[in-house]
Design a protein around this nucleic acid. Sequence first.
DNA 1: CGATTCTTTGAAAACAGTCAATCTGTGTGG
DNA 2: CCACACAGATTGACTGTTTTCAAAGAATCG
Lengths: 193, 193
Amino acid sequence: MSAGFEVFRDYVTRHTQLSEVDFGTLEAAAKPKKLRKHQYLLQEGDVCRYHCFITKGLLRTYAVDEKGNEHVIRFAMENWWISDRESLLTEQPSKFNIDAIEDSEVLLFDKSTMQMLTDSIPAFAKMVTGVLDKSFITSQTRIHEAISSTAEEKYNTFVQRYPGFALRAPQSMIASYLGIKPETLSRLRNKKH
Amino acid sequence: MSAGFEVFRDYVTRHTQLSEVDFGTLEAAAKPKKLRKHQYLLQEGDVCRYHCFITKGLLRTYAVDEKGNEHVIRFAMENWWISDRESLLTEQPSKFNIDAIEDSEVLLFDKSTMQMLTDSIPAFAKMVTGVLDKSFITSQTRIHEAISSTAEEKYNTFVQRYPGFALRAPQSMIASYLGIKPETLSRLRNKKH
DNA sequence: CGATTCTTTGAAAACAGTCAATCTGTGTGG
DNA sequence: CCACACAGATTGACTGTTTTCAAAGAATCG
């Protein structure tokens, strides 16, 4: 009854070198949690308290505007981290929602536990900073595409880069992620080639 | 003959607590550089070797597409860091250009020096990670706005958030940053409200 | 199945982009 | 110091893309 620890262990092993003792410390610190489809991991207005590692499933971060429209900020699946870093950092209520698109399983590390882990395991701290660095680079790339590509280019790039998301997320959410309307995405997809 | 060291010292003092010795180490590691308007700090195809702290002036990161159009990825001014983190991390040629919009002054910290500094000064390492964290949060916010706002909303938000950029950067670059055409920006600005 | 949600399609309206011409301000060389 | 050249900004008319609204058609789930 693993609760996703092997997924996490594989991930960590691929990204850094840790002793068996350190693995134990990490696994003891992690709180496994299961989420059913549509279940919130974080709801707007709540303070985000956890760094969250996904061992199974698919989640999204989204914001809701005054008109009630949802805007998907990001998707995340197995072997990705998800949280609202702003809320986590400032301890202010989050502007975002995070919920499960599929039944999912995650490992939760609360803020102070994470601090303790990064303080006591330098290799883990390095890995975590490396993840952040890559996240930032990915964000820059997304910004670049958002300001320079047409709707069609954005969609094609998205499908190539994230085939998993393209297959597993509803088209309305993909449209939202790309900043276009679902009708527009439907038309793009159904025009020949 | 300060070369911007007091600006840097002020900045570091505002963000962390460091001994006089550590300040000395940082300042000894920094290479001051002056840039004239239009001068490159980094040119597409070159490998980015430096973390760069701006003590004076205004710079931009931009990409050039197949059609020759420039796309401004970001602006940065006094007390901001700028670099191409992807190129810095991977040591592969950069896809971006960084150049000076005004005559500027920067402090350069090369990759290995930066590594040495963060390894030997934990408080500095924390500050640097904090900067990265905030950069990531800022990127997320920008993505959110890019996918959810109209051109007019993007412009208004930009002016409020970055009055300095709005005043100091040419409108064609601001338009590029927002992902709209200069003509469209001009029309937005000149329609009454 | 039956109900709900997601996707597709159509037609019209709104919006942003294109191309070309004019206007403005800046800086440079004569 | 003036005049010209140049880049940046504005304006107009037109085109093309995306949104909106509405309705019909799949697909999914209890």
